[in-house]
Design a protein around this nucleic acid. Structure first.
Lengths: 194, 194
DNA sequence: CATTGGTTAGTGAGTATTAACTAATAGGTT
DNA sequence: AACCTATTAGTTAATACTCACTAACCAATG
């Protein structure tokens, strides 16, 4: 997987900030260069074109995501503990870089270009499949209730997690995502455990 | 509340289609006028400016929304039946006009302008408060489990409903939202009932 | 002395919006 | 019925501006 130069990372993170604060429409080469403090053409020394920047944003997220999922894949723990590992790591990640949450949870932003849309789907699929497998595992071990299909549980869990992040965002990050996220997980646990 | 002329409705619905299919960036006066088959300046005979169109899209949705909520407010039924009324109506609404689902569930689209953001929040708040009140009522009547806070149940229910709609959308409306939505609601019921 | 990363000045295409004009229509007066 | 006039809903042409991107040049660095 490609790595990024410091300047590229700077551009990607500036892009995230711009999108998070003022929407995708504000992600222009001009705004970007002004934020960073270089001229517009200088951007093109680091990225082929704008599409390249957008694709790199998703790669950037994929890298962060992959790391979390791989860490969890290794550990030998109960299913519910694994799930909490995944979600708490994400809460921490988003707390540290809120713009990431905004951009990733607005798949709509990347909807209009096929290349982008496919990459977003892939990222979501990675997470969904991992979570689903852990749910199935939890059901086998009589740790998670079996009277509901894994797919339904998946949707409920993922939807709830997304919802708390969305709320956090809409209320201008005014509460602790890590704390409220944990509370949400506790509630979910109460409902899904055997 | 304002009403719309036929032409205005036509413009609003064309806007919804454009946004749903190709993202907010494709909502230009040119695309709009081409879709409808009139010249660009003709648009301005019906709306003051582009912002006026965006605001009207939200008003358009608010009108639909309000109707559903008012219908439910009247009926004398158990809490869970009321909730299902609300959600099933929405599933039907979105099935009939998918573009509405896309646009309304992408609040990000309207994030960059304060006026728009406020209006989106208001619409969400209307629904949230109604649902929350019904949940509290259901808990009082021992119909909904009381070991979880209403706010938590609200987030879980709303998150799950949103998630199934999002999935429907990302899979290009390839399954019946009404059918899968009912299935989702059945699962939720299993989990939240006393 | 080639590469890297920057600059200034420009391109053509696309943006929302306005000015000026017009055909069709509806209502009131003769 | 025939005429006058205001309104409605459209047109073409043009505005000022922003967009992504490029050409040409330059200074520092290894």
């Amino acid at each position: 997987m490609e790595k990024f130069t410091p300047r590229q990372t700077e551009i990607i993170e500036a892009s995230l900030e711009l999108i998070a604060e003022q929407g995708i429409q504000s992600l222009t080469i001009k705004n970007l260069s002004e934020t960073i403090g270089i001229s517009e053409p200088a951007i093109y020394r680091h990225f082929k074109d704008k599409m390249d920047i957008l694709l790199s944003i998703l790669t950037y997220f994929k890298l962060q995501n992959l790391q979390i999922l791989q860490e969890v894949a290794v550990i030998r723990e109960r299913a519910t503990v694994k799930l909490w590992k995944i979600f708490s790591q994400r809460f921490r990640l988003f707390s540290n870089k809120p713009s990431l949450a905004v951009v990733i949870f607005s798949e709509e932003i990347f909807q209009n270009e096929e290349k982008l849309r496919d990459r977003v789907r892939l990222i979501m699929k990675d997470l969904s499949e991992t979570v689903k497998n852990i749910i199935i595992e939890g059901q086998k071990e009589k740790e998670i209730r079996s009277d509901l299909e894994p797919d339904q549980l998946l949707l409920i869990i993922m939807g709830s997690i997304r919802m708390i992040i969305k709320k956090w965002r809409m209320e201008n990050y005014s509460f602790s995502l890590e704390k409220e996220g944990e509370k949400m997980w506790t509630s979910l646990l109460t409902m899904i455990k055997e």
